[in-house]
Each structure stands twice: as structure tokens, then as C-alpha cells.
């Protein structure tokens, strides 16, 4: 009788542990999605502000053209090319705002300030997203999770080469 009892409890504990692991992984997948949605939203806002800056008085015709082009590119890029497109936008903004101290009109100043605040937020959002992705990948590699296919049909989260994209 004792043998059965031990066997039964072992199965029960394994079952509990598997459900614990599945919940843990599910939560992480959820976090990858929400942190990406958050980051995506912030980047879209950045592109919108960039276009506004391009149309303002700060931008000379050449940089306005460059800025509009890179902003559109960032908005329309596929996930694969997104990182490169965002870097392009950062570069274009960097060239234009190199001498941001000389800006005097209040409308342009508030635009630049909004961009600064947004950049700080984007940095945090990137850190949150990367953390979620690396955690998820780590947990997905666990033996039990692979053997029992606890990840189900959830796609493998993509590591996003965002480091240094926004500064």
C-alpha cells in the first residue's frame, strides 16, 4: 500500500510543479507581449514627434527631408528591420538637435523637451523588454519545460538588438 502512496504523491508533486512552471512561463510570455506593446507605442510617439519637429522652424530643408524619411521608415519597418530603422531616426534627430541650446521659440522648446522625456521613458521600456525576453528564453530552456512542451504554441520571443538605438 505504502508503495502506491509514495508513487501517487510523487505524481501529484510533479503535477503541481509542472502547473507551477507552466504558470510561470505563461506569465513571462504575457510580460514579453505587454512590454513590447509599451515600447512599440513609445517608439511610434517618438516618430510622430520627429515628424512634427521636421515641420517646425528648427529644421532646415535638408534635415527636414531626412527626418521625415527616417521617421516614416521607422513607422513602417517590419519587426526584423525595426531596430535599424529606429537607429536611423535616432541619428537624424541627433544631427538636428546637436545644437539644441540655440533654440529659443517656446513651441520648439516644448517639442524638444517632450522628446527628451520620451527618450528617457524609451530607455526604461527597452530595459524592461530585454529583461522579459532574456528571462523567458532562460525559462524555456529548462529541461522539464522542453520535455513536457509547456511553452505550447507561444512563439520564441525575439531578442531585440536595441542596445544603443536610443540615446
Amino acid at each position: 500500500m505504502n508503495k502506491y502512496f509514495v508513487g501517487f504523491s510523487a505524481i501529484a508533486i510533479l503535477g503541481w510543479y509542472l502547473s507551477f512552471l507552466a504558470t510561470r512561463l505563461d506569465r513571462l510570455h504575457g510580460r514579453v507581449e505587454t512590454s513590447w506593446a509599451n515600447l512599440d507605442g513609445l517608439l511610434q510617439r517618438r516618430a510622430a514627434i520627429a515628424i512634427e519637429i521636421a515641420r517646425s522652424e528648427i529644421a532646415d530643408p535638408a534635415s527636414a527631408l531626412l527626418l521625415t524619411f527616417t521617421a516614416h521608415q521607422a513607422r513602417e519597418a517590419s519587426v526584423r528591420d525595426r531596430s535599424q530603422a529606429e537607429s536611423g531616426l535616432t541619428g537624424a534627430l541627433g544631427i538636428l538637435l546637436e545644437n539644441a541650446e540655440s533654440i529659443s521659440s517656446p513651441i520648439e522648446l516644448s517639442l524638444v523637451q517632450e522628446l527628451d522625456e520620451l527618450t528617457a521613458k524609451i530607455k526604461v521600456a527597452i530595459a524592461m523588454h530585454i529583461e522579459a525576453v532574456t528571462r523567458t528564453q532562460m525559462v524555456r530552456k529548462k529541461f522539464l519545460i522542453r520535455v513536457f512542451r509547456l511553452a505550447g504554441h507561444a512563439p520564441e520571443p525575439m531578442i531585440y538588438e536595441f542596445e544603443g538605438d536610443v540615446f
Binding site: E33, T34, S35, A37, N38, G41, A120, K121, V124, A125, M128
Partner: peptide, 14 residues
């Protein structure tokens, strides 16, 4: 303000 920014990001979609 920076702590609240982080709150906002954490609350997205919840």
C-alpha cells in the same frame, strides 16, 4: 516623476 513613469509602463494593458 520617474517612479511614476515606471508605474505607467508597468500598468500597460493590465
Amino acid at each position: 516623476e520617474s517612479i511614476y513613469d515606471i508605474y505607467e509602463m508597468a500598468m500597460v494593458g493590465s
